[in-house]
């Protein structure tokens, strides 16, 4: 099964996030948050309207303390590790989590099946 290389874990600083646009649509379609050596990836669509992206600027997905993922439209906060919305318009809903592969060399990969399945 084909897969796409997204970079290395070290490309994303601890406590930071990065957006990706694998099909060069002009807007990022998913993002990865790094916490320590753990990575969490979500579709870049806020469940409030299910039609709009989260950040106010590219890669700006987190609050200043890197405790929560933030949607910049109405300030919704999401848990980083599970995507649950804990404050804001979509409270009780969640971000759509997507699977990644991290190799023993710390390379980040996403399968083409995942890209197709989540329309990334």
């Amino acid at each position: 099964m084909g897969k796409l290389w997204l970079g290395n874990v070290s490309d994303i600083a601890d406590g930071q996030a990065k957006g990706f646009d694998p099909n060069h649509s002009g807007s990022d379609t998913f993002f990865i948050v790094r916490q320590g050596n753990e990575l969490f990836a979500y579709v870049d669509i806020c469940p409030h309207y299910n039609d709009t992206s989260l950040p106010w600027k590219r890669h700006h997905y987190l609050d200043s303390a890197s405790d929560y993922i933030v949607c910049a439209a109405h300030g919704a906060l999401f848990e980083i590790n599970n995507g649950d919305c804990v404050q804001g318009p979509c409270k009780g809903q969640k971000l759509s989590k997507i699977p990644l592969e991290v190799s023993s060399q710390q390379e980040i990969w996403i399968s083409l099946t995942t890209i197709k399945e989540f329309n990334l």
């Binding site: 106010w56 700006h60 949607c71 439209a73 109405h74």
Partner: peptide, 9 residues
């Protein structure tokens, strides 16, 4: 309208 760090558009 633009998204913003003010918690609103």
């Amino acid at each position: 309208y633009f998204k913003s760090p003010f918690g609103c558009n």
